[in-house]
Design a protein around this nucleic acid. Structure first.
Length: 304
DNA sequence: ACGCGTCAAGTACTC
DNA sequence: GAGTACTTGACGCGT
C-alpha cells in the first residue's frame, strides 16, 4: 500500500507548484508579454513539482497528486490559441520522465469549479476545456492512462436522476484520453457512494472511494461490506485508489484536519483488508500534507 | 518586509 | 437578483 498526498509540500522551502497571476495583472501586459509571463510561472511550477517528486523519492513516497494550477489561466479565453504544451515541452517531459523512471503513481484532481453535469452549456463547455487541459498536461509529460484524473459528479439541480443522466451523456462527449483517465469520487454533500458507484459501473470507469466523504454523506442502508468489493471491482486489473482524511472538528466535520488520526485510519485499513485481497493506494487529504503522511507512517510502524 | 483584501472558474442556500 | 459560504494558498496593493 502506498500513501500519497496532494500538490503542496510543507517541508521544502519556496517550493510551491501553485504560483499564479491574477487576471487583472495579466491584462496589463501585451499579448506576447502575457505568454512570456505565464510561461515563466508555469516553468517555475514545473521545476517545483520536480523538486517535490525528488523529495518524495528521498522519503519513499511514490504516490502524488499534481497541482491543477501548474499552467495558470491556461484555459482562459484571453489565452486562446496559446500552445502551452509546446512552450513547456521540455519541462513537462522532465517531470514525466522522472515519474516513469521511478515508477511513481500520479494523478490530478480538477476541483469544485469543473462541473461536467451542469445544466448550463457554457459551464459544461468550460469543464470539458479544463479536463482537456489536465489531459494535455499528462500527455505532455508522457504519462500513460494509468495516471488518472479524479472528478466529482457535480450539482444536483433539484433533480438528481436527471443530473446523473446529464453526467453520463456529457461523459460520452469527452476525448478517448480523458475517458481513459477519468475516475469519479463520492462527495461530502451531494452524490453518495452508492450513486457514484452505480455511475462508475454504468460507464465502466473506476471509482475513487473517499472514506471521509462517506462519513459526511451516506444513507443508513449503505453497507461498506457490500459496497467496497463492488468499488474495487470497478478498477479491474488496476490498483484501486482511495481518499482518506480526518474531520477538522465536530463542528466543522466536513473540513480536513491538519493530520490523520491514526486509530481511525488503522480501523479502516483493517476493514478494507478484510473485504479484499487486492493491494490499494490511499491519498491523504490534510493540511500538513507530506508531514502528515510521514507522521502517520511513523505511527503505524510503531504500532505494527 | 509585512499585513490583509482579493482572486477565473460553480452550486446551494438565504434573503 | 444579490450576497455568502464552501475552501485555500498565493497575489499584489498599500504602508
Amino acid at each position: 500500500m502506498e500513501l500519497g498526498y496532494a500538490c503542496v509540500n510543507m517541508s521544502l522551502k519556496d517550493a510551491s507548484p501553485n504560483h499564479r497571476i491574477t487576471l487583472n495583472s495579466l491584462k496589463k501586459l501585451s499579448s506576447e508579454g502575457q505568454r512570456i509571463r505565464l510561461k515563466t510561472i508555469a516553468k517555475k511550477n514545473l521545476a517545483n513539482t520536480l523538486r517535490i517528486l525528488k523529495f518524495n523519492k528521498a522519503h519513499n513516497i511514490n504516490f502524488y497528486r499534481f497541482s491543477s494550477n501548474i499552467v495558470p489561466l491556461a484555459t482562459h479565453p484571453i489565452m486562446e490559441g496559446w500552445d502551452y504544451i509546446l512552450d513547456l515541452k521540455k519541462d513537462l517531459l522532465e517531470v514525466g520522465n522522472y515519474v516513469k523512471k521511478n515508477g511513481m503513481r500520479t494523478s490530478t484532481h480538477p476541483g469544485q469549479y469543473t462541473v461536467l453535469n451542469s445544466n448550463r452549456e457554457d459551464i459544461v463547455s468550460r469543464a470539458i476545456d479544463d479536463l482537456e487541459y489536465h489531459s494535455k498536461l499528462l500527455i505532455g509529460m508522457g504519462l500513460d492512462r494509468t495516471h488518472k484524473m479524479v472528478l466529482h459528479i457535480g450539482g444536483a439541480y433539484g433533480n438528481k436522476e436527471k443530473a446523473i443522466e446529464k453526467f453520463k451523456s456529457n461523459f460520452a462527449r469527452l476525448s478517448e484520453d480523458i475517458k481513459g483517465r477519468l475516475i469519479i469520487e463520492n462527495d461530502d454533500t451531494t452524490y453518495n457512494t452508492t450513486e457514484v458507484l452505480e455511475i462508475a459501473e454504468d460507464l465502466g470507469i473506476p471509482m475513487v472511494f473517499d472514506i471521509h466523504h462517506f462519513n459526511c454523506n451516506h444513507q443508513e442502508d449503505e453497507d461498506l461490506k457490500e459496497l467496497i468489493p463492488r468499488i474495487f471491482a470497478t478498477w479491474g486489473d488496476e490498483k484501486p485508489k482511495l481518499h482518506f482524511s480526518s474531520p477538522k472538528s465536530e463542528k466543522k466535520y466536513a473540513s480536513h484536519a491538519d493530520n490523520i488520526e491514526k486509530d481511525d485510519f488503522l480501523e479502516y485499513i483493517d476493514l478494507l483488508k478484510s473485504l479484499t485481497d487486492k493491494d490499494f493506494d490511499i491519498m491523504l487529504e490534510c493540511k500538513n500534507k507530506d508531514k502528515a503522511l510521514l507522521k502517520l507512517r511513523e505511527e503505524i510502524k510503531v504500532e505494527s
